[in-house]
Design a protein around this nucleic acid. Structure first.
Lengths: 170, 170
DNA sequence: AGCTTACGTCAGTGTTGTTGACATTCCAAT
DNA sequence: ATTGGAATGTCAACAACACTGACGTAAGCT
């Protein structure tokens, strides 16, 4: 087994949790857990001819109603063309409403329709159910650690977006 | 704000960490963190004309040298056609070697070549670096919680695969 | 001999992402 | 008032990565 060479001679703190093997287990845990994380919504979506991209759009529009396309673009980290394709179908299907901005008429503000909210509800119910089970199994302390590690893993820009959404939801 | 209706009257334990808002923050944390998780390898891969699928294959072949195609299929959770496309390019490019099984000649055992190991090293160095920073920022207790929640989030089948890899690496 | 398993491949399709190019609309500055 | 830039939208082409379905080959099992 290889080692980073940083595990020895660092005083009382063993830092055993930073060995390459521990890090690799963390990487694999992320990989397998993300599969579970998306599995339930994915099943619902394939029945509805939608994909994960539609879920993400619906999720964040619900989370921040009236958000602009540009704002959504930054949160989702995709190109406007990619997002536009998804939004177009959602608007055409009557799940999302796009209203021209009042102060800046170039901007489009996005809202879920009743039907859109119904889908969001259905998807997030499924996803929250899994998250709830996992949180309950692991316990409150583990949940705190989970959140701290994930936050530290984000790119700074995403960490800011995440913090903004957190404030908004509280 | 909606509520699950499970937050009240449960005695001393408040279960505040299981509110819909907390769960939604967990969901968003997973989304943003996974982006960071894959960002560094993705950057390396695009330069090399490879994708995330190649990374996953190389990772697990390195992790379990001599693994069969079928075993890899189960771990990655994709179709054989999808995996085969990736394996074909990796073998053609001399990163992976496919050896016919000794006892069962139908099976192909997969190994990384020196060149394959070099790529795996490069990719996992980048990914481990981010994981290491995140782990160090969050601290050992948080890392334990992180791992417990992720494990609880996996599908049972993936939890078994994860456990098998853990034993193997120890 | 017949069935199953493991693997590979061909063909077609769908989702999601990417560039690049171009039009429109609007705000803001000269 | 015109010019420049930002925000949005659209079209086209393309690539990665997943899927299904069908077919073939070789090997193993009963």
């Amino acid at each position: 087994m290889r080692d980073t060479g940083m595990g020895a001679g660092l005083g009382g703190e063993s830092l055993l949790f930073l060995t390459d093997e521990q890090l690799r287990q963390g990487i694999e845990a992320m990989f397998f857990a993300y599969r579970g994380f998306t599995a339930d919504p994915d099943r619902i979506l394939t029945d509805l001819e939608y994909g994960r991209a539609h879920h993400r759009a619906v999720h964040f529009i619900n989370r921040a109603p009236g958000t602009t396309v540009n704002n959504l673009l930054n949160i989702l980290g995709v190109t406007k063309q990619s997002l536009n394709r998804v939004l177009r179908t959602l608007i055409a299907d009557g799940l999302v409403e796009s209203r021209i901005g009042h102060s800046d008429k170039r901007e489009r503000h996005l809202y879920l329709t009743d039907e859109g909210r119904a889908l969001e509800q259905k998807l997030s119910d499924a996803q929250r159910a899994r998250m709830r089970t996992a949180f309950r199994e692991a316990g409150p302390d583990a949940v705190g650690g989970f959140r701290r590690v994930l936050e530290a893993m984000m790119d700074p820009e995403m960490r800011r977006a995440y913090a903004r959404l957190k404030e908004q939801g509280a």
